[in-house]
């Protein structure tokens, strides 16, 4: 194959697709690793933690998320498609009226937001929400 401009473009596009595909599982593993080190690999329950995030975010720069896990002492948020998956950890003190909090986070692209709650009895709860991050039509 001679290296015409067109072929170079095709090559470039192929390389990009490859790195993107290769990148996703790497980030997902980072998240799994982070969760495993938090829980010590313990089984996680579902249902006692609620994670609220938009299905579609207009801009990944500022995505509102809320977590609520009655009885949790600590909630950690992850974004499994971000270069660094950890987002925040909320530790609830004696004067916390509920084990809930809201914040605004950055998402590098469409991905899962994961919330892990550590309950009073030391067990863990997990909730996930997929957030589609749209790209604006007008950069303007």
């Amino acid at each position: 194959m001679t290296l015409t401009r067109r072929n170079l473009l095709i090559l470039g596009a192929g390389t990009y697709a490859f790195t993107t595909l290769a990148g996703v599982p790497a980030f997902a593993n980072l998240t799994d690793d982070a969760i495993a080190s938090l829980t010590g690999g313990a089984e996680m329950g579902e249902g006692a933690i609620t994670l609220t995030a938009p299905e579609i975010a207009e801009n990944g720069n500022t995505v509102p998320v809320s977590v609520d896990a009655p009885g949790a002492v600590e909630i950690t948020l992850y974004a499994d498609g971000n270069p660094v998956p950890s987002v925040a950890t909320f530790r609830f003190g004696p004067l916390s009226a509920s084990s809930s909090a809201s914040t605004r986070i950055r998402l590098a692209g469409t991905q899962n937001v994961v919330a892990i709650a550590k309950m009073e009895d030391g067990s863990f709860q997990i909730a996930k929400a997929n957030v589609k991050v749209t790209i604006g039509g007008c950069g303007g």
């Binding site: 974004a79 660094v84 530790r91 609830f92 009226a97 509920s98 909090a101 914040t103 605004r104």
Partner: peptide
């Protein structure tokens, strides 16, 4: 007395915003 203690990572948006509930004894 502590209400909430948050660890922030770089994925928290510009101008960090938090909402939470506190007991007022």
């Amino acid at each position: 007395q502590n209400i909430i203690d948050v660890t922030l990572e770089p994925a928290i948006s510009t101008n960090p915003y938090f909402q939470f509930e506190a007991l007022v004894p």
